[in-house]
Design a protein around this nucleic acid. Structure first.
Length: 176
DNA sequence: CCCTGATTCGC
DNA sequence: GCGAATCAGG
């Protein structure tokens, strides 16, 4: 994928915002972490090697979806809770779990109707289960993003959670 | 092992 | 210029 002016600008912006290379690679879809790092260096973006290990993980306020990246409004709280509740009962779970890479929302494809939950600490995104409704094109969820971002280990955790009895689900699953 | 960024070097 | 492979480190 070619480095267009737009993508260079986005890379610069995200890099300066402090997103990690892998997070940037994920958001920008179609490039690897190495590509991000290599390009960042060639662009002369500030190094972060000494500070990297000390930089705190970007935190997301629980129940405050978002918006640092795009300046949009949060999804309606009620609908999120309802989705989570449905999931806690095992309803509609499969659709979210089976989300594929091709469904990924990126900064380039965000619209006023897509969920804006950002990439962040997985612990915070953990129970953000607003679901994808392909039929009316509404609401996506970082749940998909974090699944792909965290990889196999995370998939395993989710699978285990799915197998857990309803009464064993953590309270915060429906408390946001 | 998980992750991070830095560097090298064949393409 | 690009980025996979590799390195060094928390």
């Amino acid at each position: 994928m070619a480095w267009t002016q737009e993508r260079e600008d986005l890379l610069r912006k995200l890099w300066l915002q402090g997103l990690s290379a892998s997070q940037i690679a994920y958001v920008m879809a179609g490039i690897t972490r190495n590509a991000v790092i290599g390009k960042a260096h060639r662009m002369g973006l500030p190094k972060r090697s000494p500070a990297t290990s000390h930089r705190p993980k970007p935190r997301v306020q629980r129940g405050q979806p978002s918006l640092a990246l795009v300046g949009a409004r949060p999804a309606p709280r009620e609908s999120i809770i309802e989705k989570q509740f449905q999931r806690s009962l095992g309803l509609g779970y499969e659709a979210g779990f089976e989300a594929e890479q091709g469904d990924r929302v990126t900064l380039m494809t965000l619209t006023s109707r897509t969920c804006k939950w950002p990439i962040g600490d997985p612990a915070d995104a953990d129970f953000h289960f607003c679901s994808h409704d392909a039929e009316n094109g509404r609401s996506y969820c970082e749940f998909h993003h974090s699944l792909a971002y965290q990889g196999v280990r995370r998939r395993r955790q989710v699978a285990e959670r799915r197998a857990a009895p309803v009464e064993a689900l953590p309270l915060r699953a429906i408390a946001v």
